[in-house]
Amino acid sequence: MTEPVIELHEVSRRYDDGRTALRQASLTVCRGEAVAVLGPSGSGKSTLLHLIAGLDRPDAGTVTVDGVRVDRLDETGSALYRRSKIGMVFQFFHLVDDLTVAENLVLPARLAGTGRAEAKRRAAELLENLGIGRHTRAYPGRLSGGERQRVAVARALMNRPPLLLADEPTGALDSAAGQEVSRLLQDLNADGQTLVVVTHDLALARACTNRTVRIGDGRITEDTAAQDPAAEAVR
Rank of each mutant, 00 (worst) to 15 (best):
G54H: 02
E147L: 03
A176Y: 07
P169R: 12
A207D: 10
L185H: 04
G115W: 00
A117D: 04
N210S: 15
N159L: 07
L55C: 14
V153G: 08
L27C: 12
R82K: 10
Y139W: 00
L130C: 15
E7A: 11
N189R: 11
G32C: 05
R150W: 02
Q227I: 13
V68Q: 02
L173S: 11
L185P: 05
I86C: 04
Y15M: 00
T47I: 04
S175P: 00
L99T: 03
E222T: 12
V106T: 15
L8N: 08
Q227C: 15
L130G: 14
V35S: 06
R160H: 09
T114N: 08
V197E: 03
V11S: 04
L22H: 00
L111N: 07
R14C: 04
R13F: 10
S84F: 09
A36G: 03
G32T: 03
V35T: 06
E128A: 09
T28K: 13
L73A: 14
G131T: 15
L165G: 02
M88F: 14
L188N: 12
L130R: 15
E103F: 08
Q91F: 08
V96H: 08
C30W: 07
R57Q: 14
T114I: 14
E10T: 15
L127I: 11
V213Y: 00
D66Y: 07
V70R: 08
L80A: 14
S46N: 04
P162M: 02
V213W: 05
D74P: 04
G61L: 07
K45L: 02
T224D: 14
T209P: 02
E33N: 08
V37H: 03
R134G: 10
A177M: 09
R142S: 13
E147R: 03
V153Y: 13
A226Y: 02
Q186E: 15
L99V: 01
T100H: 01
R183F: 15
A233E: 13
M88R: 07
R142L: 12
A109G: 10
N210L: 12
G54E: 01
R116A: 08
R82M: 07
T62P: 04
D201I: 05
G18K: 10
V153M: 10
E168Q: 00
T47C: 00
D223F: 01
E3P: 00
A124I: 00
A36Q: 00
T47M: 11
L163G: 05
F93R: 01
N159T: 06
L49P: 06
N129R: 15
R219Q: 12
R23G: 13
V35Q: 06
R13S: 08
I52E: 01
A156V: 13
